[in-house]
Design a protein around this nucleic acid. Structure first.
Lengths: 152, 152
DNA sequence: TGATTGTCGTTCAGTTTTGAACGACAACTC
DNA sequence: GAGTTGTCGTTCAAAACTGAACGACAATCA
């Protein structure tokens, strides 16, 4: 087997990617916690639900979208339900199914929190990148995303 | 306050970034667990120690490098110590300090695991990107990393 | 229809992370 | 050099995640 080690450029790219993401995640968690007592996974759930038709989604589909395990999503939806931001509903077309539904309070919460969150994403990522850098990064990420999603 | 919402391109970039990273993390965790019973944070600790002079680092410095909280690092070093891959040593220059030292077993473990790990990083990220994409991504990540590290 | 196979969401035990609090030592100030 | 302030690493309880196992239902096929 040929290991094919990473050269300096590749190593730099990988480390920059990993470190930056973790740092950014920390910053985002900090901001969301302070602003609304939300975690980033919880916020992501609200965002995806708000964009879905009827502001609702099946659990499994939602888990795929936000890239969480089923059990992690079960846990978080329960938390959000306690906070009144999401409700569970029976799925009419599938007796096994559960729909996570964004409540009005959940929508209001999201609208209240989103600007501050976006500001962080802007301040540390988006606004520091040129339009071309942004485009290149998106293309690159999508290639990887596709490869990862299709291989399972 | 002006929210300055994200437009479609910016939104796409951000979502691609977040989703891809989480997917890749999952894949990496899976590979490392199967190959050596290591988690990604643990692997990162071994990598950083192996690259440090004397294969040792102060706890706080190591925590900064791998982007972990102090308590998370304390926990992980304890786990790695149980596995015999890392040892703790007193810091000669600072009575409060603790050095995390990579053992020979730890170094051998890393050398054994690294190729498989690198293969995953290659297969899903590095090898799918052109040299220029790689370079652009690194530049972009570094800008963000610098901003995040300097603001604390 | 009945049997098989697969998917859905939850549960559970075990693992990991978080953030605040802490004792111990270092660095600085006067 | 005594007092203040800051940093170091750990501890603790609470929160969150993981992966395997599960009961319930759906889909497929003979």
């Amino acid at each position: 087997m040929d290991p094919r080690w990473l050269d300096a450029t590749e190593m730099a790219a990988w480390h920059a990617f990993v470190s930056t993401f973790h740092l950014l995640e920390r910053r985002i968690e900090e901001q969301l916690k302070a602003a609304a007592g939300l975690t980033h996974p919880q916020y992501e759930i609200l965002v995806h639900l708000s964009a879905a038709p009827g502001r609702q989604m099946r659990m499994t589909e939602l888990a795929r979208d936000v890239v969480a395990s089923k059990s992690a999503l079960t846990y978080q939806i329960t938390q959000l339900e306690k906070a009144g931001l999401v409700e569970r509903a029976h799925c009419p077309s599938d007796e096994r199914g559960v729909l996570a539904v964004l409540t009005d309070a959940g929508m209001r919460c999201l609208e209240r929190v989103a600007p501050g969150h976006v500001e962080v994403v802007r301040a540390y990522l988006i606004d520091r990148l040129s339009r071309e850098e942004l485009h290149t990064m998106t293309t690159a990420m999508r290639k990887t995303e596709r490869a990862l999603r299709s291989s399972h």
